[in-house]
Design a protein around this nucleic acid. Structure first.
Length: 207
DNA sequence: TGCCAGGCCCTCTTTAGGGCCTT
C-alpha cells in the first residue's frame, strides 16, 4: 500500500520478544495485530511462537508468557509466514515503531520475506499531539485518553488493540483541533517528523 | 571479566550527554 493511502486503513501490530535487540540474538515470541479498515477493526491476528530456546524469567514475568506455553507453540517461521499473508500490502502502525519494525524485518529475513508497507509510530505522533500527557508510554496514553481496556498489558493482541484505539484518538485529535479529516498515512509520518515546537503551526497551515 | 540496542529528542547542544520508549 502506498504512503498516500488513508491513515485509517492500517495494520496495528505489537511483538512480545525475548529481549530488546534482534542483532543480539533476540527473537519474537508472540505477535498480535489489528486490521483497521476505514477506522474499524475488521480482523485480528494473535499467535505465540517458539523461538527455539528458553526465555528468561524476566520475560516470563514481564509478559506472562511461559516456557511451557512456548514449547507447544509453532516455530517462528511458520507464524511469520501466516502473518506475512495477514499484513498483505497494508501500511503498519506500532507504539515505538522502530522497535517492532526491527523485529518484523529480522523475522521476515528468516523466511525470505520483505516489508511491503511503510511504518508509522503512535509514540512519536503522541509526543506531538498529546504534549500534556504525563509521559508517552502506551499504558499512560491509554489512561490519558480514557481508552477502554481490560487491564491486560504486555500481551501482543491486547497491546495492539490499545495502540489501534490510540491511533484512532490521534486521528480524532487532528479532526477536532485542526479540521484534518481522513489524513493520509504519509501526512501522519510527516507530522511525526516535525519538532514539538513547530507541529501546531504546521497543522494550522495545512488545515 | 564485564558488558551487551537503537532511534528520537531535549538541552546546560551540534567536536555531547542523557532520558524516553519498546521487550
Amino acid at each position: 500500500m502506498t504512503a498516500q493511502a488513508p491513515a485509517n486503513t492500517v495494520v496495528v501490530l505489537d511483538f512480545e520478544t525475548t529481549g530488546l535487540s534482534p542483532t543480539q540474538g533476540d527473537r519474537a515470541i508472540e505477535i498480535g495485530a489489528v486490521l483497521l479498515e476505514n477506522g474499524q477493526a475488521t480482523a485480528r491476528f494473535q499467535e505465540l511462537m517458539n523461538p527455539g530456546f528458553r526465555i528468561s524469567s524476566f520475560i516470563e514475568d514481564y509478559t506472562g508468557i511461559t516456557n511451557a506455553m512456548l514449547q507447544e507453540a509453532a516455530p517462528c517461521d511458520e507464524v511469520m509466514e501466516r502473518f506475512y499473508q495477514f499484513v498483505g500490502q497494508h501500511n503498519m502502525v506500532a507504539h515505538n515503531a522502530s522497535f517492532d519494525q526491527r523485529f518484523l524485518e529480522a523475522e521476515f529475513d528468516q523466511i525470505g520475506r520483505r516489508l511491503n508497507g511503510d511504518f508509522a509510530c503512535s509514540m512519536l505522533l503522541s509526543r506531538r499531539l498529546f504534549q500534556d500527557a504525563p509521559n508517552h508510554k502506551l499504558g499512560s496514553l491509554v489512561a490519558y485518553n480514557n481508552i477502554d481496556n481490560d487491564g491486560v498489558f504486555h500481551r501482543a493482541l491486547a497491546d495492539s488493540e490499545m495502540t489501534a484505539k490510540l491511533w484512532l484518538c490521534l486521528l480524532e485529535q487532528l479532526e477536532q483541533h485542526y479540521s484534518l479529516i481522513n489524513p493520509s498515512f504519509a501526512l501522519m509520518q510527516q507530522i511525526s517528523r516535525k519538532s514539538k515546537a513547530n507541529v501546531a503551526s504546521f497543522l494550522h497551515k495545512i488545515a
